[in-house]
Amino acid sequence: MLTIAASEYRAQLRNRDAARARLATVVADALRAPAPQRRPTKPSRGAKERRLEAKKRRTDVKRLRRSPYE
């Protein structure tokens, strides 16, 4: 048994219409197929190397900004 109550409006007829609309969305959501599950993947070797190379470049840039007394 499924009960949907609506008391948003003062008029009973508008509340019935709101409850019917809510029921329609619940049924439509239940009938929709689930989204496909994500298949976990690993980054490629080249992507790992590019990422590490970019980190090294960034480190060098920041190292050049430092004062020589640190």
Rank of each mutant, 00 (worst) to 15 (best):
Y69L: 02
K56C: 05
G46A: 14
A47C: 07
R58A: 08
P68I: 03
R38K: 13
A18M: 02
R50M: 03
A47M: 06
A33C: 02
A28Y: 04
K62M: 07
L23T: 02
V27G: 04
T25N: 10
D17R: 15
K42P: 00
A54Y: 05
R32Q: 12
V61S: 13
E70C: 07
V61R: 15
A18K: 09
A47P: 00
P34N: 04
Y69H: 11
T25G: 01
A47V: 00
A30M: 09
R10D: 13
A35K: 14
E49T: 07
V27D: 04
A11N: 14
Q12P: 04
P43T: 05
R38H: 11
K62A: 06
P43N: 07
A35D: 10
G46H: 08
E8C: 10
A33K: 13
A5R: 15
N15H: 04
K62P: 00
T3L: 13
A19S: 06
R51W: 02
L2G: 11
R58N: 07
A11Q: 13
R38N: 05
R38F: 06
R57E: 02
P36K: 09
Y9V: 00
R66P: 00
A21T: 05
V26A: 13
L2S: 12
M1F: 11
K42V: 06
S67F: 12
S7F: 03
A11F: 12
V61H: 14
R14M: 09
D60C: 03
P36W: 01
R38M: 04
